[in-house]
């Protein structure tokens, strides 16, 4: 596990596709040989895919009308 730590620290950047090719290859080599780390990588990928597939709907929550009008009122107050 001590050795895996080195790879787990970079797993997020790997899953996000932000590692340079040589580091990416190094991680992939380790994942192929280490089922527990492979499971971690798969779980990260799954959560990332599920959230990003829904991101637009999740972030566009229906704002309660009362809140919108209070915010609009603050904005109008500032412009006066």
């Amino acid at each position: 596990m001590g050795d895996c730590r080195r790879f787990l620290d970079r797993l997020t950047a790997y899953v996000d596709g932000l590692l340079p090719p040589e580091e990416r290859a190094e991680i992939e080599q380790h994942l192929a040989a280490c089922p527990p780390c492979q499971d971690c990588a798969s779980d990260e990928q799954i959560a990332r895919i599920v959230l990003r597939a829904r991101a637009v709907r999740l972030r566009n929550a229906a704002v309660p009308p009362g809140l919108r009008s209070r915010c609009d009122a603050s904005l109008r107050g500032r412009k006066r």
């Binding site: 997020t12 971690c40 959560a47």
Partner: peptide, 8 residues
Amino acid sequence: SRGRRMLA
């Protein structure tokens, strides 16, 4: 990393 794995 931990959050994504937890969520999955």
